[in-house]
Write a protein that binds this DNA or RNA. Structure first.
Length: 605
RNA sequence: GGGGGCGUAGUUCAGCUGGUUAGAACGCCUGCCUGUCACGCAGGAGGUCGCGAGUUCGAAUCUCGUCGCUCCCGCCA
C-alpha cells in the first residue's frame, strides 16, 4: 500500500519551520508577485509527475497554488519531490513566476502563476485517504462522518463552514450595533415539561437528580429582560432529543434574541433588517422591506401550511359550503360533520396521466388523506371519477368559485380540516416542485403572524401551547381566555422563506396573573407550575417589563444561503440519523465507576 | 413506533430469470515520461458480495432474521 519513504528528519524540520514564516495563503499570488521569494504551507491536493517535471497543486484553507519541482532548479529537491503523495502536508520555499504562454489555468485564482520550488520540507506524511477529496465524489455518509476531518478538507463543505462563520460575525455586528448585549445562559439547567424530550445530565452531587440541556434558553432570556438588560442575543446551541430529519439535528444552533419595551412591529422591523443585512452581505441580494405579513388563518386557508412557499400561486380554495346539502355522499357527509373540502386548481394540466395522478394520490396519503378526488376540465366534458355524483348546481358553483378553464385539472381534499390542509398544502408544494414553478434564485420572505394560542390535544384532552406556554395572547383577545380559549390568538410570529420556517417567536406574558391563567388552561396544576416555573412566576412579580423575542435557526439559514438540502453539510461535526457520531463513536457505554459515582444503574431494554 | 430506498474492491457502481475464475471506472502500487492541471503510456495489487440462519447438488443472486446508512410520517418549533 504505502510506498517506500525516507523518514522525516525532525531536527531539520524544526530548523526549517523556525527559519521560515509563511508569506502567503494559496489564493493570493498573482502575476504582480512574479519574482518574489515566497514561503507556502499546505496539503498536496493533486500531483502530476512527468518524470522530468513534477507539478503539485498545493491546497490550504483559502485556495490552491501550483508548485513546480524542476531538476534544473535543484536536482535533489526534484528527486525528493517524487516522494510526495496526496494529502502530504508541506512547507515550501520558492520563487513566483508567471506561467509560460498559453499555460495559465483560468479555473484557478492563482492560475496565472506558479511557484518554482527551491527547498521544501514534508511536515507530515499522509496515509492514502479512504476517499478522494474532491467535491464531485459521492461517498457513503458513514464513511464521510468517520473521517469528517478529511471530508471537511473538501471544497464544498469547507466553504459552508467558512460561510457559516461569516454569517455569525455579521449577525453579531448587526445586533451589537443595534444595542444588543451578548449574554451566555446555562447549559446545565432544569428539565421543563411541554415541548421536546430533554437530554438529561445526571448529577453526581445529588443522586437521582438531573440537569437538562436546554431546548432553548427561553426562560433565561425572559429573566434577562426582568433583570433589565433590554436587548439580549446569543448564538447558542440547543438540544432536543427527538428523531432526526434532513434539516434536524439533536443539537443545533439558534440566534436567540429577546427585547423589552418594543411593539411587535418595531421589533420585527429590527429583525428583518438583520436578515436583509445577512442576505446583502453574503449574497449581495437586496430583500425588499418590509417583509409582507400574513395572518396564520389566511395562510392556512390559502396554503394549507404555516410555512408556505409563496414563490408560486397555486392556492387552495375552500369549497365546503357547496357540498352542504350534496347528494355526493363522501363530500356531503364531511361538509355536514364539520370537516373541510378544499380544491387545488392546476392550470393546463388536464393531461396529467393516470400514473401521475396515482403518484400524487400516494403523496397525499402520506399526510393522512384517504384519497384524492380530481376533475379534468376538458373542452366538452368533465373527466372524473366523481363528476357523475355532482349536481348541475354544484358544478356551476365550483366553476364560479374556482374559475377553472378547459385544460385545467382540479384536485379535492376532503376530511378533517387538519388532514385536508396538511395533505393539500404539501401536495401544492409537491406539484410546485414537480412543475418547476419555484424560481431557485428567488427569496420570498413572509412573516406569518397571529398564530392560535392553543391547540387541542385529543389524547390528553387538554389544550397545549402552539408556541410555548409563555406566549402572550393578543392583547385585545384577553377576554377570550375565559370564554373560548381555543379561539384566542397569540402574539406570535414566524419568519418563513420559500416554504421554510427560519425563525419564530412571540411577545411574552409579563404578568404573573395571566401567566398563571395560561398554566391553568394548560392543565398545569398550581403545584406543578410552582415546582417547574416557580422562579418565573416569582420574577414576573418584580416589575417585569413587556418583552418578547425570536429565535432564528442558524443551521437552516446557512442551508438556504448555501443551497444545501441537508443540515449535516452546514455543521462541522454532525450526527447520523440515529444520533450517533461514527468518528468518536458517541454515544458509548461508560466505565462502571462513573455510573457508580452518579448513582445510576442501567437496565436492559 | 411506522413506511420507502440502499449495503458487492479504498471509493462510486454493474452483476441479481441461482451455475466456470465476481467485473468497470476512479483511487492505490511499480516503471517510463520537461508543461501538466480529469496529465499520458505500460504493467500490477486489491473482494468475509454488511452479518447470521434457511432453501438448494450449488446462493452476491431466492426466503427469514439482524445490523448499518439514508429519506419520509409520527415526534419535534
Amino acid at each position: 500500500m504505502t510506498h517506500q519513504a525516507s523518514p522525516i528528519n525532525f531536527h531539520r524540520m524544526s530548523e526549517f519551520i523556525t527559519k521560515l514564516k509563511r508569506t502567503h495563503h494559496l489564493n493570493q499570488l498573482t502575476r504582480a508577485d512574479a519574482g518574489k521569494k515566497v514561503v507556502l504551507m499546505g496539503w498536496v491536493d493533486t500531483r502530476r509527475d512527468h518524470g522530468g517535471l513534477i507539478f503539485v497543486d498545493l491546497r490550504d484553507r483559502e485556495g490552491i497554488t501550483q508548485i513546480v519541482f524542476n531538476p534544473q532548479v535543484d536536482a535533489k529537491t526534484h528527486e525528493l519531490g517524487g516522494e510526495l503523495r496526496t494529502e502530504y502536508c508541506l512547507a515550501i520555499r520558492g520563487e513566483v513566476r508567471p506561467r509560460p504562454d498559453g499555460m495559465a489555468n483560468p479555473k484557478l485564482k492563482t492560475g496565472e502563476i506558479e511557484v518554482l520550488v527551491e527547498e521544501f520540507q514534508i511536515l507530515n506524511r499522509s496515509k492514502t485517504p479512504p476517499f478522494v477529496l474532491e467535491d464531485e465524489i459521492d461517498v457513503n455518509e458513514e464513511t464521510r462522518l468517520k473521517y469528517r476531518y478529511l471530508d471537511l478538507r473538501r471544497g464544498s463543505l469547507k466553504r459552508n463552514i467558512i460561510l457559516r462563520s461569516r454569517v455569525s460575525q455579521i449577525v453579531r455586528a448587526y445586533l451589537v450595533d443595534h444595542g444588543f448585549l451578548e449574554i451566555e445562559t446555562p447549559f446545565l439547567t432544569k428539565s421543563t415539561p411541554e415541548g421536546a424530550r430533554d437530554y438529561l445530565v445526571p448529577s453526581r452531587i445529588h443522586h437521582g437528580h438531573f440537569y437538562a440541556l436546554p431546548q432553548s434558553p427561553q426562560l433565561f432570556k425572559q429573566l434577562l429582560m426582568v433583570a433589565g438588560f433590554e436587548r439580549y442575543f446569543q448564538i447558542v446551541r440547543c438540544f432536543r432529543d427527538e428523531d432526526l430529519r434532513a434539516d434536524r439535528q439533536p443539537e443545533f444552533t439558534q440566534i436567540d434574541i429577546e427585547v423589552s419595551f418594543l411593539s411587535r412591529d418595531d421589533f420585527l422591523d429590527i429583525m428583518e433588517g438583520l436578515i436583509a443585512e445577512v442576505w446583502k452581505k453574503m449574497l449581495d441580494i437586496d430583500i425588499s422591506l418590509p417583509i409582507p405579513r400574513l395572518s396564520y388563518d389566511e395562510c392556512m386557508e390559502r396554503y394549507g401550511l404555516d410555512a408556505p412557499d409563496t414563490r408560486f400561486a397555486l392556492e387552495l380554495k375552500t369549497v365546503t359550503p357547496i357540498f352542504q346539502n350534496s347528494g355526493f355522499k363522501v363530500f356531503g357527509e364531511i361538509a355536514r360533520s364539520g370537516g373541510s373540502i378544499k380544491a387545488l386548481v392546476v392550470k393546463g394540466k388536464s393531461d396529467f396521466s393516470r400514473s401521475e395522478i396515482d403518484d400524487l394520490t400516494k403523496f397525499a396519503g402520506i399526510y393522512g388523506a384517504k384519497g384524492l378526488a380530481y376533475i379534468k376540465i376538458l373542452e366538452n366534458e368533465w373527466q372524473s371519477p366523481i363528476a357523475k355524483f355532482l349536481s348541475d348546481d354544484e358544478k356551476q358553483q365550483l366553476q364560479k368559485t374556482l374559475g377553472f378553464k378547459a385544460g385545467d385539472i382540479v384536485f379535492f381534499g376532503a376530511g378533517t380540516t387538519k388532514i385536508v390542509n396538511d395533505s393539500l398544502g404539501n401536495l401544492r408544494e409537491h406539484i410546485g416542485r414537480k412543475l418547476k414553478l419555484c424560481d431557485p434564485k428567488k427569496y420570498n420572505f413572509v412573516w406569518v403572524v397571529d398564530f392560535p394560542l392553543f391547540d387541542w390535544d385529543e389524547e390528553e384532552k387538554r389544550p397545549v401551547a402552539v408556541h410555548h406556554p409563555f406566549t402572550s395572547p393578543k392583547w385585545d383577545e384577553l377576554s377570550l381566555l375565559e370564554s373560548e380559549p381555543l379561539k384566542c390568538h397569540a402574539n406570535a410570529y414566524d419568519l418563513v422563506l420559500n416554504g421554510n420556517e427560519i425563525g419564530g417567536g412571540s411577545l411574552r406574558i409579563h404578568d404573573a396573573g395571566i401567566q398563571q391563567k395560561v398554566f391553568d388552561l394548560l392543565k398545569i396544576s398550581k403545584e406543578e407550575a410552582q415546582v417547574k416555573f416557580g422562579f418565573l412566576l416569582e420574577a414576573l412579580q418584580y416589575g417585569a417589563p413587556p418583552h418578547g423575542g425570536i429565535a432564528f435557526g442558524l443551521d437552516r439559514l446557512i442551508m438556504l444561503l448555501t443551497g444545501c438540502d441537508n443540515i449535516r453539510d452546514v455543521i462541522a461535526f454532525p450526527k447520523t440519523q440515529k444520533a450517533t457520531d461514527p468518528m468518536t463513536e458517541a454515544p458509548s457505554t461508560v466505565d462502571p465507576k462513573q455510573l457508580l459515582e452518579l448513582g445510576i444503574s442501567v437496565t436492559k431494554k
